[in-house]
Amino acid sequence: MLKKRIIPCLDIKNGRTVKGVNFVDIRDAGDAVELAKRYVIEGADELVFLDITATVEKRKTLIELVKRIAKEINIPFTVGGGIDTLEDAQAIIRAGADKVSVNSSAVKNPRLITEIANEFGNQCVVLAIDTKFENNEWMVYVHGGRTPTMLRTVAWAKEGEQHGAGEILLTSMNNDGTKNGFALDITGAVADAVNIPVIASGGAGIAEHFADVFLQTKASAALAASIFHFGEIPIPQLKAYLKSQNISIR
């Protein structure tokens, strides 16, 4: 039976992980490769690396890092953050990433999704959507959640699927950082509206939140960052708990 996926997200700045980690057996908590290897051993099903570097030097550093990750990691991984053109996506995939995620650039130019999908296949393109509930509507935000758009979230997800996205990574800005649980309503609505996998993101605080999103929505995967980085929910315990709730878990 197909398993629900647990995906740690690593924020990368200047080639290093941003958030501190307290794993005792990691010498360099800022080394993305060491942290990623640790997650693989713990049973992560996939990894997402989000580059938040804001300098022109970023691309070269990122490509070098992607090459190192690809050499060491034996599970699928996605790289996102500032992929604005087909050339950006080509460089990252050729360096060894399995998928790229696009966000603001896809809103600006939806054909980017199609261009990447045509060259590498739909499964290589993850459409990341940052969404915020306001005035009784879930709306799409871009530029790291700083800029509102006129796009409604469910409609944009469906449009992204039609353009060739192979997966949707849906982050609720209302829930992100709250540790109060995933946004079940919009995650459920998007997962019902598309026929591609949806990754729920934003709001995970305890193991029960993961069970909620898997039992109450059709989400295929759940992503979290800080609770894994700081060891608040060790992945093996999380997975054991989800199995005890009869959720299909690797």
Binding site: K3, D45, G166, P197, S220
Partner: peptide
């Protein structure tokens, strides 16, 4: 057939 999510993505037995 489009009876479930396609592509079949993830870990399976």
């Amino acid at each position: 057939p489009p009876k479930d999510i396609v592509p079949h993505t993830g870990w399976n037995n």
